[in-house]
Computed example of a mutant assay.
Amino acid sequence: MATFQLELVSPEKLLLSRPVEMAVLPAADGEMGVLPGHAPMIVALRGGVITVREGGQETEKLFVAGGFAEVSPNRVTILADEATPVASLSRATAEERIAACRKALEGAAEMTPEKREAAMARLLAAEAMLAAAQAA
């Protein structure tokens, strides 16, 4: 089966770089499947899980807290704000993040719209992290 090069980079390190058959990305507008030959685009990512398929089956799941993906017909490069294998996620850590984000949003009335939006995005990413940790 045809493949494309998938690269996942976080601020800490290169997490993944190999040919894959398909990747499902948590795009800001909804789940997005990428196959070889996909039209070029740049996509904003929300907090969620990237699913990688190789050899006709799901081989890897990685949680990303947001970022961007550059898609071309033969390569996808993901620049993630934070990335963690789903199997390594901790429910307790996710619950702590949710509590901290909710506390930060308590003062939302005094925030600029941009800061409110960023705080809400962090809360949604933390909730997606908890959902991924519970599903693992």
Rank of each mutant, 00 (worst) to 15 (best):
3 T>I: 08
4 F>C: 10
4 F>H: 10
12 E>T: 11
13 K>G: 05
14 L>R: 15
14 L>F: 04
17 S>M: 10
19 P>V: 00
20 V>N: 01
23 A>W: 00
23 A>H: 01
24 V>H: 09
25 L>S: 05
26 P>C: 05
26 P>K: 08
27 A>T: 02
27 A>V: 02
28 A>D: 09
28 A>P: 02
29 D>P: 01
29 D>Q: 14
29 D>C: 06
29 D>W: 08
31 E>I: 01
32 M>F: 12
33 G>L: 03
33 G>N: 05
33 G>Y: 01
34 V>S: 03
35 L>F: 11
36 P>D: 04
37 G>L: 07
37 G>C: 09
38 H>S: 11
38 H>D: 04
40 P>T: 10
42 I>A: 14
42 I>S: 12
43 V>P: 00
46 R>W: 01
47 G>W: 00
47 G>Q: 07
49 V>C: 02
52 V>R: 08
53 R>A: 04
55 G>E: 11
58 E>M: 12
60 E>I: 02
60 E>L: 15
61 K>H: 13
63 F>I: 00
65 A>G: 13
65 A>I: 01
65 A>S: 15
65 A>P: 07
69 A>T: 00
72 S>I: 03
72 S>K: 12
72 S>L: 12
74 N>F: 09
74 N>S: 15
75 R>H: 12
76 V>Q: 03
79 L>A: 10
79 L>T: 06
80 A>Q: 07
81 D>A: 14
83 A>E: 03
84 T>F: 05
85 P>T: 03
86 V>S: 06
87 A>F: 07
87 A>P: 02
88 S>M: 14
89 L>P: 01
89 L>S: 06
90 S>W: 09
92 A>M: 10
95 E>Y: 06
95 E>T: 12
96 E>H: 13
97 R>K: 15
98 I>G: 06
101 C>L: 05
101 C>S: 15
101 C>E: 11
103 K>Q: 15
103 K>T: 12
104 A>E: 13
107 G>P: 01
107 G>Y: 09
109 A>F: 11
110 E>Q: 15
114 E>F: 13
116 R>G: 05
116 R>M: 10
117 E>C: 09
120 M>G: 10
121 A>W: 01
122 R>P: 06
123 L>S: 06
123 L>Y: 05
124 L>F: 09
126 A>T: 06
126 A>E: 03
128 A>M: 08
128 A>Q: 05
128 A>T: 04
128 A>H: 04
135 A>I: 04
136 A>Y: 07
